[in-house]
Write a protein that binds this DNA or RNA. Structure first.
Lengths: 187, 187
DNA sequence: TCATTTTTTTGACTTTTGTCAAACAACGCT
DNA sequence: AGCGTTGTTTGACAAAAGTCAAAAAAATGA
């Protein structure tokens, strides 16, 4: 099911709703290793990722990159707090691969919500999905050992494993890179 | 600043808005060691905690209680996913002490949002605050050692430490109770 | 109050995970 | 293709955290 069908089915979109929507999104590309969002700046854009992959991260006190999320095809790329409240972002979002996306700005999104009220609900649903996935992640960090976290990760995200540097997966899972290397050998 | 003042200041409440609000909340008590919300049931209530303390938890595969959150005086007691979507709760919420609270049901909240639209925004703000605090928690679990997590916890929540069983703090921090006991001795 | 249950601490031990440094492999750029 | 950079593995070791069982302490309810 493509995106339009989903909107029609789930949110009762009319042709006009769809038109108002697509006219406010525009296709953009994000080359690999370039920042989609930079720490300290206000997130003005939200993207629907059509292809490629991104990750969000921040720097800890020893200047290590701590990865907090991977965005893959079909997901919404957003720094929730920064975009929703229009405050400076605490995290960076960077393209891991060349990305194709459909982008909407904050201002256009506000317009769109006025024109097509269902978008308020969609925004809420996206936020909620992110909350739920963060909750799952948090519980995993709280209850699983390093190797359990890794095994669950490769089971749920075999595609990410192929395409992302192990050190980013290690930091995402809260495991030292050398330890992760040994866990991988032992499986 | 009390609750009413906050609503007036932040959300421009009128006297009428306030009246519509208070008439839908009602005071309730929750005795210590009784469930405010039981796993598997739909959360029909949201509470503003005036006094006492609660915690949310679930059971892991070995039937250990895993505490996910502490609610203290002044906070909103809610199982976000269950209340917002009216789906069965995955977690339990239990009173740790006798609690006094102001309670509103889901249906009354929907009414209230219709009567006083600012409540939609308040709901969003509460959700967002919970998202942010979950994000902080998740980052701590990802990046800090057991003793760092504990030291941060007692710095931020000295009040909880006094009033809650250590085993619940241990499970909240993802630390074995015996290990936590040793960490405490070493500080 | 007192007995019972629950919680916390402790000891001895094992397992898991991290640290540091070096070697090795892969990648990106010209 | 080749160089330099970045990422990964490995070894030797150290530190952190978990396990099991028993003792001690504290809380609960009759």
């Amino acid at each position: 099911m493509d995106f339009k069908d989903k909107l029609v089915q789930h949110y009762g979109f009319t042709e006009r709703d769809w038109y108002e929507t697509v006219s406010r999104y525009r296709p953009e590309t994000q080359p690999a290793r370039t920042l989609f969002l930079e720490k300290g700046k206000v997130a003005t854009r939200l993207a629907y990722l059509r292809s490629g992959m991104m990750r969000s991260f921040f720097y800890d006190d020893k200047a290590n990159e701590i990865t907090t999320h991977f965005f893959k095809k079909g997901s919404v790329v957003i720094s929730m707090k920064s975009f929703n409240d229009q405050v400076p972002s605490r995290e960076n979002i960077i393209a891991i691969e060349d990305c194709e996306m459909d982008v909407i700005t904050y201002d256009r999104m506000q317009e769109l919500i006025r024109e097509v009220p269902a978008w308020r609900q969609i925004g809420k649903d996206v936020d909620e999905a992110m909350y739920n996935s963060l909750m799952n992640r948090s519980i995993q960090l709280q209850t699983l050992t390093a190797s359990e976290r890794y095994e669950l990760f490769i089971k749920k995200h075999p595609d990410i494993l192929q395409r992302v540097a192990l050190k980013h997966i290690a930091s995402y899972l809260g495991i030292d890179i050398a330890t992760l290397s040994r866990i991988r050998k032992s499986i």
